[in-house]
């Protein structure tokens, strides 16, 4: 494929794929299922050659906003991991300070209605959000991804059954499922992680399956098959490395959705038991004193908003990045 002679930076429009990530619980569904119908850059330029670039160019091409997003998520993770080492107030120290203080040097974001340091609670709250987000999606990825790889590679009746089941699972109101589990089993971090993990199996299954189907028909896979390579080997060596980038970029969006799901449960008081701080729980508590001090509610909301936005954006950006690279093949 000829490289266009101009040194002009490729003016790729900021395509938001139709399967836009949505934060509400159920629309883990939205992305993959909607995407199948609508995928594809919105703006196709006449005969524009798209070619793979060198890594340094790739870093630039992902854009400034992408790296801001990644930076934010990294910062949140870092703070959450190092929370115990940081000079923070006790997040559960009720009455250790005066309640509802304004932000000051001593309490960066002020204190809540029980006199606890909000900054400290947000950082400790990030632990719950991140653990739930990443662990549950890891579960979903391992189970859903493996099933998707197998179903997409072998097809046949098993695939049809899985596919049908995932369609139903995708659209069913996720919160109702979560509530039912919590009502039946009781609330704990473990319950939350596992049930959100279960919920994430269907969408991740679909993403991986759809991509596997595409790659399973590519020449290099057919060639490997013709050469008599074992199927396990083809799946692991030929298909997985190609499916993984898309799946991982979608997984980032899925982590955002899982974090929101945990937030919703915590908001309803059904996630980790108090007094362990969670973002959703803090928003819910702050809600009761909206009239006196809206800031108490604002800080955890901002933390949640920017984390979700960053994950959505980074995932989305990566996805279109890999799609473009794909187009250059």
């Amino acid at each position: 494929m000829p490289e266009p002679p101009s040194s002009r930076p490729p003016s790729r429009p900021d395509v938001v794929p139709a399967g836009i990530p949505s934060t509400s619980l159920g629309v883990m569904a939205g992305a993959p299922a909607g995407g199948e119908v609508l995928e594809g850059p919105a703006d196709v330029q006449l005969g524009e050659a798209k070619t793979a670039r060198a890594p340094s160019a790739a870093i630039r091409r992902l854009g400034f906003a992408f790296w801001i997003s990644v930076g934010w998520v990294a910062l949140v993770i870092l703070l959450a991991v190092l929370a115990n080492l940081l000079p923070l107030d006790d997040p559960n120290g009720i009455g250790s300070s005066l309640p509802k203080q304004s932000p000051s040097l001593q309490h960066l974001l002020g204190t809540d209605s029980l006199g606890r340091d909000i900054f400290s609670r947000i950082i400790f709250g990030a632990r719950v959000s991140l653990i739930v987000g990443f662990t549950s999606i890891f579960i979903g990825m391992v189970v859903g991804g493996t099933l998707g790889l197998i179903a997409g590679f072998y097809r046949g009746p098993l695939d049809a059954i899985f596919d049908g089941a995932s369609t139903v699972a995708l659209a069913f109101p996720a919160l109702v499922f979560l509530l039912a589990i919590v009502a039946a089993v009781g609330q704990s971090l473990f319950t939350v992680v596992v049930s959100i993990g279960i919920l994430s199996i269907a969408p991740l299954f679909r993403i991986v399956r759809a991509n596997t189907i595409v790659y399973a028909q590519r020449e290099f896979v057919l060639a490997a098959r013709a050469l008599g390579a074992r199927r396990i080997r083809i799946m692991a060596r030929e298909i997985l490395p190609n499916v993984l980038p898309t799946a991982l970029s979608f997984a980032l969006v899925a982590v955002a959705i899982a974090i929101v799901a945990e937030g919703a449960l915590a908001f309803l008081g059904l996630s980790v038991r108090p007094p362990t701080p969670t973002w959703g729980g803090m928003i819910s508590e702050g809600r009761t004193s909206l009239e006196q001090d809206a800031l108490i509610c604002l800080w955890p909301s901002l933390a949640l908003f920017f984390t979700v936005l960053a994950l959505n954006f980074a995932g989305d950006r990566l996805r279109s990045f890999f799609e473009i690279r794909e187009g250059g093949l």
């Binding site: 619980l25 569904a29 939205g30 119908v37 109101p173």
Partner: peptide, 25 residues
């Protein structure tokens, strides 16, 4: 509007979830 209808269908789950939260708030 075909895709819109499809997405609206998929969106029902999200919507019910949202309705639960909104009713609570």
């Amino acid at each position: 509007t075909f895709a819109l209808v499809t997405v609206a269908g998929i969106n029902i789950g999200t919507l019910i979830t949202g309705a639960f939260l909104v009713e609570f708030i």
